[in-house]
Amino acid sequence: MEWMAWTTPSALFFVGIGSIILTMVCWEILSPTVPTKGFLPIITTRGDRIFISLLSAAFIHLGFIGLTMLPLSVPLIVAIIWLFIVMKWG
């Protein structure tokens, strides 16, 4: 993997995304999802909500990086809270 020039943060990021996908696949196999409509204006499945959460986390981090000087732990906490909100009531 030398051609990729992995750094520890980038490797952890992709391991984390892979773990989320693997967890979602196992969860779907054990308990098939039922499309629901929460506060989001569309009918979503668990996979849709995790995708929306990941995409939102990217925008939350970009917003914090671009608009504030706060440490990255702040947008991480905000993104995790948003993940739980979307997964529970989205």
Rank of each mutant, 00 (worst) to 15 (best):
F14A: 02
V86W: 00
T68Y: 00
L55W: 10
G90L: 00
P71Q: 04
L83Q: 12
M24T: 13
T44N: 06
T68K: 00
I50E: 10
L70V: 04
L70R: 01
A79C: 13
T23A: 12
I77T: 08
T7I: 06
T36Q: 12
A11K: 01
W27I: 04
S19A: 15
I21V: 14
E28Y: 03
I85F: 02
C26R: 12
K37V: 04
E2Q: 12
M69T: 13
L83Y: 13
M24I: 11
G38Y: 00
V74T: 04
E28C: 04
M24L: 15
S31T: 08
P71E: 01
W3G: 11
L76N: 07
L70W: 03
F13N: 05
I50L: 14
A79F: 04
F64Y: 10
W82P: 03
I42A: 06
C26K: 11
W82A: 15
V86L: 14
L54V: 08
F14N: 01
S73Y: 07
L12F: 12
L76D: 09
L22E: 08
A5N: 13
W89D: 02
F51T: 15
G18I: 01
F13Y: 10
P71F: 04
T45K: 07
G63Y: 00
E2V: 09
L30N: 12
V34W: 07
W6C: 08
P32G: 08
I77Q: 02
G38A: 02
L30F: 10
L76A: 15
I80Y: 11
L62C: 08
V25I: 13
L83C: 15
F64K: 04
V78L: 14
L22Y: 12
S31F: 09
S19H: 04
L30W: 09
G63K: 05
M24Q: 15
P75T: 07
I80C: 13
T8I: 14
I60K: 09
F84V: 09
G16T: 12
A57E: 02
G18K: 01
T8K: 11
